[in-house]
């Protein structure tokens, strides 16, 4: 990677921005958890905020936003099988209600 010192300094400013965003979102997720919006909505909101935080970490800290195709392919593959894993509890509850 032929990045100049200037580029790196620019990166660093982005990292600080992401850091602040993560702190804010942590505060938000705690705050929101005390508001009762119904069980399902609470869970959905918490997971969505966590997903946003995770995406920020992955995209900027882990440099995924400018990564090579091969890495994307690997992660897409893992994502597909991850979905397969999540199918496990879904399938199990479908079983419980005898569909």
């Amino acid at each position: 990677m032929g990045e100049s010192v200037e580029d790196i300094k620019k990166h660093v400013r982005v990292y600080i921005g992401v850091f602040v965003a993560l702190l804010v979102l942590t505060g938000v997720t705690i705050g929101v958890s005390y508001i009762d919006m119904g069980h399902g909505v609470n869970i959905a909101v918490a997971i969505v905020i966590a997903a946003i935080k995770a995406s920020l970490v992955a995209a900027y800290f882990m440099h995924l936003i400018s990564e090579k195709k091969l890495i994307y392919y690997t992660l897409i593959l893992a994502a597909i099988f991850f979905v397969g894993l999540m199918f496990l509890p879904v399938g199990h509850s479908l079983d419980e209600i005898r569909i």
């Binding site: 399938g91 479908l94 079983d95 209600i97 005898r98 569909i99």
Partner: peptide, 8 residues
Amino acid sequence: LTGMGTTI
């Protein structure tokens, strides 16, 4: 044999 539903 685990009593799985027909859809699954």
